[in-house]
Design a protein around this nucleic acid. Structure first.
Lengths: 224, 224
DNA sequence: GCCCGCTATTGACACTCTGCCAATAGGTAC
DNA sequence: GTACCTATTGGCAGAGTGTCAATAGCGGGC
């Protein structure tokens, strides 16, 4: 026999094993919803004993949390995209970058963020945290992080905007009910509106504290 | 003894019992996430045997589905709000109505819609369906449901918008990071932008098929 | 090349939760 | 009071999860 004295299992460096398990878990959680993926499935996929998952990650939820974190805390943006040009240019570039990034990660991203995953406070906290980081990055990238007083409010609004981003991406990736161009258009226009009309005092517009945007503020055609 | 011959349990009409169980389930699912609420908890809360839940609702998921449905398919809008006036007026009235409705239902609504609940295909389908109904209603209410050809695309965009609505409401209801006025402002401005700039051909604007809104379309100040 | 110790990994046990179904008993009509 | 209908119960079997002592890769010492 070829496997006469072959070891029944191989010993890996903790980091390597952790990484391997995480990769399998990421794929499975992308294919099926949380509850449908048993730890036994993940263990079988990775070719290890189920107990090893708990050894490395603790609870099943913690493993899921790691997957979510990795998905949401995509590094990039400020390193990849230059923060120059008109507002519209910057908005469109950041939207473009985001769509690219998500397209690369594919379904898992949608499964993790879109469905909101498991309605667990801890998971939700992680998602909220990631949204907050993304919000801060976006604000900073757009060159709007100036007033510290109302920063919390603006961050909250950017987190809200993140909801629009997620649902739009789901329409695009999942059902294909929106094309990439549609998504781009919708996200860009909305973000520009938010920046212009909802925080107008951050923009060039001087105006009063919050100039009741009921009367359409006259907008000079933005440089494009 | 007072309870010498008192019956150990009382017999109810199926509809009444179903209703009672549903009420308890609704409350519990609003307090804790799906996985944290066991059928035993619900049964204890309702004062019945656990098996009765399965008898009336089948799977635990089906019970949850019923709760979600009841939450999401809030009737109203077209019956309550008149579809007259300028675009801005109609938008603001519908946003107002929606905020009122959600505020009435409170945390359960947020728990059910916001977190996305359980990442289950069936539950997701229900939510998507409800979003779609809401989207169609909104389009109709805004007086934009005219072209049948691109209706699917517009519906998809309104479903995306629903994502913004949900996340905004969560910021408002949960953390209180946004005030009701903030939510109103954000949602109104965004919806107006979408209707104006993303489906401009549906509005008064004639223009080509999709006139690349990069160049800011000149907007006459809307009647207000 | 052989043995030894370290520790990555296993396998089984106990517990919880869920779905199912035959048996039970509340209530009503006669 | 009695008998029937069926709403309701309670226990059983299966699946999934977390825990922990025991096992066995595998590198280092000689």
């Amino acid at each position: 026999m070829s496997s006469a004295d072959a070891p029944r299992w191989t010993r890996l460096e903790p980091d390597a094993r952790r990484e391997q398990i995480l990769a399998c878990a990421t794929r499975l959680f992308g294919e099926r919803p949380y509850a449908e993926v048993s730890t036994t499935d993940i263990a079988r996929e990775a070719g290890v004993a189920r107990g090893l998952l708990n050894h490395y990650f603790g609870q099943k939820r913690d493993l899921y949390l790691k997957v979510v974190k990795r998905m949401l805390l995509m590094p990039g943006l400020e390193e990849k995209v230059s923060a120059t040009g008109s507002l519209r240019q910057r908005v469109e570039r950041s939207v473009e970058w985001y769509l690219d990034t998500v397209a690369a990660h594919g379904k898992t991203y949608v499964a993790v963020t879109g469905a909101g995953s498991i309605a667990d406070p801890e998971v939700e906290r992680i998602i909220a945290e990631a949204d907050d980081v993304a919000a801060a990055k976006t604000l900073q990238f757009l060159g709007l992080k100036v007033e510290v007083g109302s920063d919390a409010r603006h961050r909250a609004m950017m987190r809200s905007y993140a909801g629009l981003v997620k649902s739009t991406i789901r329409e695009w990736i999942r059902g294909g009910t929106l094309s990439r161009e549609d998504a781009h258009l919708l996200l860009s226009e909305s973000l520009i509106t938010i920046v212009r009309d909802v925080f107008p005092h951050l923009h060039q517009q001087p105006g009063p504290e919050r100039p009741a945007p009921k009367a359409a503020s006259k907008r000079s055609k933005d440089a494009k």
